[in-house]
Amino acid sequence: MQQANDAEAVSKAAQAPSPDAEALFTPQQEARIGEVVKAYLLKHPELLIEVDQKLQQIQYDEQITAMTAAALQHQDALLNDKSVPSIGPADASVVLVEFFDYQCIVCARQAVVMQSLMKNNPQVRFVFQEWPIFGARWKPSFNAAETGLRIWQQKGGDAYMNYHNALFATGHTEGALTQKDITAAAGKTKLKGKESDMLTILSRTDILAKNVGFQGTPGIIVMPASGATADKVTVFPGGAVESMLQQAIDKAAAPAAE
């Protein structure tokens, strides 16, 4: 009986993994591998740059995926708010939405691109979301946005675009914009109302921009006017050259695959 018990104990011991069974390398081997890897990376530092670039691309792709989903979630607010400037056919199948600040130097460069894009795509509706993110630092940023909204609501699209383009044409950004610039861009337009009348709209735009995931200006979204799906939406968290925006418009306008 004792022999049988001993045999069973030996069998169980053989089947049970030892504490070191999962260790592929000894501590000495692991240390040596670390030294080899370190030496190799020091000799080929370009690999670290490649890994960093890959990581940044993964993070960017994840950001765009999240922002695209957010744009779809908030598409009614993005596309159908009558209180913000909207230029182009009411029945357009594609809409481009831009969040911008008149003090933003990248937005000023983007304005030139937008003018060309609008000329070449009269079938697209362009929505201009006044987002004065520099207003707390430079008051003219807020005043310019407020004036733009009032011109849009009281005088319409043509008057708004004249003001919009004239203000960016001054080249006065990053704190250089003045009330004189704003008054000159508005021209002889007689406006009614006060800044407080626009606070609700500007606050709503601020919330919307942040809900989509934008952290600064410009922020651009291109999407179908209705029936949008993730594969038809393009988000640019920053400026974009005309060719990229045109590709986004063409993608949004393309018929759905059967």
Rank of each mutant, 00 (worst) to 15 (best):
206 D>W: 03
114 M>K: 02
210 K>P: 01
124 V>E: 09
254 A>C: 15
201 I>Y: 02
113 V>L: 07
160 Y>S: 01
140 P>A: 10
198 M>G: 00
101 D>Q: 10
84 V>N: 01
158 D>Q: 15
168 F>Q: 00
161 M>L: 13
74 H>R: 11
110 Q>A: 06
253 A>Y: 04
118 M>R: 13
85 P>T: 02
216 G>M: 08
173 T>L: 07
20 D>A: 07
216 G>S: 15
115 Q>S: 12
99 F>K: 00
219 G>I: 01
140 P>M: 07
235 V>K: 00
207 I>N: 11
18 S>I: 04
155 K>T: 03
162 N>F: 10
73 Q>F: 12
130 E>D: 11
116 S>Y: 11
98 E>Y: 01
123 Q>W: 12
37 V>P: 04
159 A>L: 09
248 A>V: 04
18 S>A: 12
182 I>H: 00
87 I>W: 02
49 I>S: 10
78 L>K: 05
19 P>N: 09
199 L>H: 13
121 N>D: 14
205 T>H: 02
14 A>G: 08
114 M>E: 13
90 A>C: 10
182 I>S: 01
29 Q>C: 04
59 Q>V: 06
246 Q>K: 08
67 M>C: 07
53 Q>I: 06
125 R>W: 03
98 E>D: 14
115 Q>M: 05
209 A>S: 07
22 E>D: 09
28 Q>A: 15
8 E>G: 04
195 E>P: 06
37 V>Y: 12
99 F>C: 03
132 P>V: 06
168 F>H: 02
232 K>D: 03
62 E>G: 05
192 K>W: 07
206 D>T: 06
237 P>Y: 01
172 H>C: 02
212 V>P: 00
249 I>S: 02
197 D>G: 00
9 A>V: 13
